[in-house]
Amino acid sequence: MSSEAAAAPKTNGWEPKIVAFCCNWCSYGGADSAGMGRFQQPASARIIRVMCSGRIDPLHVFNAFLEGADAVLVTGCHIGDCHYVNGNDKTKIKYKFLENVVRELGLEKERLQLNWISASEGEKFANFIRDVTEQIKKIGPSPLKPEGVV
C-alpha cells in the first residue's frame, strides 16, 4: 500500500512513452490486426517498423532510452516462422546481450521486453501493450530520460 502511495504522484496523469520495434512480416501485422479488430489499447506505444527483428541493433534500443523512452519492446515472428529463415535467432542473441546490459545498468526488467507476435495475434499485441503500459505506470518514468523531456 505504502509503495503504491509513493508511486502515486509519478503516475498522476502521466502517460508513459513506449517504443515498440515491430517486424514487417509478423508483429507489425499483429499491431495492424489489433487496430482492425478494435482491441482496446492505450496510446502509449510508438511503433517502429523494421523489416526483421534481427535488424534491431542494441544501439537503436539504447537510443530510444536515451531520447526518453520509458520502455522499449522488441517484437518479431515466432521462432521458426521468420520470413528470412533465421533472423529472429539473431534477435535472440542480440537481445541476450542487450538484456544483460540493461539489467546490469540497473533499469527495471519491465522496461525492456521481448515478445513473439504473429500477424494474426492482434489481441495478443493489444494485451501486451496494455500490460506493459500498466507496469510502467507503476514504476514511473525512466531514470535515463533527458532533462526537460516528458
Binding site: 542494441p58 539504447f62 537510443n63 536515451l66 546481450f97 542487450l98 544483460n100 531514470p143 535515463l144 533527458p146
Partner: peptide, 24 residues
C-alpha cells in the same frame, strides 16, 4: 560514430555501446 559530444544524454552512447560489445 553514434556518439556526439553535443548530446545531453544521461549516459553516454559511447559507453553503452562499449559495455555491450565488451560483454563477451
Amino acid at each position: 560514430e553514434f556518439h556526439f559530444r553535443g548530446d545531453a544524454y544521461r549516459m553516454s552512447m559511447y559507453h553503452l555501446v562499449r559495455f555491450l560489445h565488451l560483454a563477451d
